[in-house]
Simulated assay, not measured.
Amino acid sequence: MDTSKHTLSVLFQQLGLPSDQKSMESFIARYSPLPSEIAIQDAPFWSESQSQFLEEGLEEDSDWAEIIDELDALLRH
């Protein structure tokens, strides 16, 4: 069982995205603001596998859910 604390950087790695601070900030700036009527997993910039990972993480209230929510909040600003 994975008991490590997930961070935004680890989430970006899991999604196959560059995970250094500058890359994460650039990604968030590029895709913000995400309209409120679009669920994070349904955003058009995700691949099918990325979208599925996000959806499963939220639906199953997995240990990823909290950091996915954090990314969601960052994309809404």
Rank of each mutant, 00 (worst) to 15 (best):
Q13I: 08
G57F: 04
L74D: 08
I67A: 09
P33H: 00
P35C: 04
P35W: 06
F53N: 08
E66L: 14
S4L: 11
Q13N: 07
E66K: 10
F45V: 03
L15N: 09
E70N: 11
Y31F: 15
A39P: 00
L15W: 04
S19P: 02
I28T: 01
W46P: 01
I38G: 00
A29L: 09
G57K: 02
L34D: 05
E70Q: 13
H77P: 04
D2R: 15
Q21L: 10
S19A: 14
E60G: 06
M1G: 15
M1C: 11
G16L: 06
L8M: 14
L58T: 04
R76V: 12
E37I: 03
S47T: 14
G57H: 05
I67D: 04
R30F: 15
A65H: 10
L71Y: 02
S47G: 06
P33I: 00
L71K: 04
L58H: 01
H6R: 09
S51W: 05
Q50V: 02
E66H: 06
I68V: 08
F45C: 05
Q14P: 02
E56P: 01
I40D: 07
K5H: 09
W64C: 01
E60A: 11
L11V: 01
L34E: 02
Q21A: 11
L17I: 03
Q21K: 13
Y31R: 05
L75E: 12
M24W: 03
T3V: 08
F12P: 02
Q52F: 12
D2Y: 13
A43W: 03
I28N: 00
L54R: 01
P33C: 00
S32R: 09
L71W: 06
A39L: 00
L54H: 06
F12L: 01
S36W: 10
E66P: 07
F27P: 01
L74C: 04
L58K: 10
F12R: 05
E55G: 03
L11G: 01
L17H: 10
